[in-house]
Design a protein around this nucleic acid. Sequence first.
DNA 1: CTGTTAGCGCCTTCAG
DNA 2: CTGAAGGCGCTAACAG
Lengths: 341, 341
Amino acid sequence: MPATIKDIKEETGLSLATISKYLNGGNVLPKNREMIEAAVKKLHYEVNEIARGLVTNSTRTIGVSVFDVTDMFCSLILHQIGIELGELGYGLLIVDASNDPERERSNIRFLVNKKVDGILCLPASTNSSVLESAFNAEIPVVLVDRQFRDRSLDGVTINNREAAAKAVNYLIKKGHKKIAVICGNEESTSRERFRGYRDAMEDADLEIPKEYILNDGTATTAYGYEAMQKLLKIKDRPTAVLCTNYGINLGVIMALNEAQVNYPEDISVVGFDNLLLSNVLKTRLTVVEQPMERFGQKGVEILMQRIREKKENKGVNDDGHINVILSTHMFEGESVRDLTV
Amino acid sequence: MPATIKDIKEETGLSLATISKYLNGGNVLPKNREMIEAAVKKLHYEVNEIARGLVTNSTRTIGVSVFDVTDMFCSLILHQIGIELGELGYGLLIVDASNDPERERSNIRFLVNKKVDGILCLPASTNSSVLESAFNAEIPVVLVDRQFRDRSLDGVTINNREAAAKAVNYLIKKGHKKIAVICGNEESTSRERFRGYRDAMEDADLEIPKEYILNDGTATTAYGYEAMQKLLKIKDRPTAVLCTNYGINLGVIMALNEAQVNYPEDISVVGFDNLLLSNVLKTRLTVVEQPMERFGQKGVEILMQRIREKKENKGVNDDGHINVILSTHMFEGESVRDLTV
DNA sequence: CTGTTAGCGCCTTCAG
DNA sequence: CTGAAGGCGCTAACAG
């Protein structure tokens, strides 16, 4: 059995209170300090955070729920959040929804039951009801990357609509007129990016044939692959395609390679996120870059603020939300052909 | 404040014991059951796992420490472990070492303080001392993928030496004689794979020029990139290169693309792990496939066994270790040129 | 089947 | 600066 504070009381002859105070950084007589330190070492004493959490009603632990750990986007954000939280002396409890809303719901409940001080969520679900248990327990929640459809919460995102429009405008500037889009039909990000695509096309008075819109699946590599195959079969093939996320982009590249269709020669490709993939491909991809580190940074920052407020006000205040909008940047790779020359 | 068991006692008039029993699946009179259920719903009651853990001295939570969350290999295993543990009704606490042994050490301590019932570890460190705090607390630990240099623990691995030899023999069978290797110099996997490479070369009486051995860095994409660049500058260029892990493989592909060196025409490439990359590249990679799902499955299985044993024997028994060796498989892509034809 | 009583390991008043 | 006492929320014997 691991040593408890009692064992070190026996060892030192001091009282529990004194030892506890020492462990929490309080002032203790030098000789007592030494005695305690010696006992701690000798008995391999480690604080029982469970017991501590019970009395302080705070675990110094943040729950992080991601829609899919194997998704590069998620794991990069997890990485960043881990660093951020580590510096603040907070631990993090990571749970993976594997893109399953039901699992996500029970994951959140798990976090609530574990009494995390706050939750950062990259939701798989589109409806805020997955967070019900957190709301009931009055645990602060901050969304990262995605928002819900039914109501907006504290969060950090980019302006997805604008970003997609920027990408399309880039294509237009390069002389493209026949531009297709492949995007998911669920998450807020996909939906907003689709709107951005449409905005830009309309603003440029460009027609959008029905078969140029591929948005009847989830934003995965598998869907990107499938959608691109469809696109290649169209008689009036588009000269460019917008992939509204990293996964789709991967799938598109797979389909192009398989069909021996070259980019940018035969078709131009614009995607999102300048992650690993782009560096491994012979032809570097042109993409909308998101500030990956800042998602985590800002998310943690907002969450900490909320936790502080809750402690001070003795309750969650319900007046409005903070929504940080990060800026994006077009990375010019070599996957877009310039048709104006 | 979230509701406690006391609140639902007030609400129902029942005693704490009855309510507790109900919550833990015990038998209760139907009408009482209904009362409790109603109160639970009304008050949004959720068990406080912290308090429960304190008294049961078990958190039904497993700690998982990975060397790098952003590493595809890690995240796939995390995914699998999450599913496995979910089915068993266990939660998991994920911590990320970011390849930093110091961080890993404090992460493990964090898990210990959180009183996890067991730990699954994909270590960043090469020495078992990072797990000291877990050993002291007598928390069962199972290693996944990697072993330590100083002593072996319960774990699940592949036979890395054999796997690498298999890959080299494949190259030899295809007529290659000038085979280089790029591998890390730290983790057990890299070291073993290097030995396997040497075994196979020696068995075939093939010479290994010094400059064919690139093993003075960490097994990362960056190192793979750098090492491949060096390899390309050699006068007597090898006809094939063995990449001892996925990251290195990525880096190698990057370097080849950049230098406009084609594979398998100009140089053949064999790597490890048939992950995303292979599907995205035009030329499918020939690799040693590891059974990704089984790492997690077996790891969880062993850990659960240890936890059970500990509970029964009231202590960790120290007689020997379980080391499960998973089998591997050569996946034949198109990245190896057949020199025998 | 239900209720009463301890106590898990720790922190936090409050006296001394 | 130190000690004694109470309690965080829950479960685990018991006794009824």
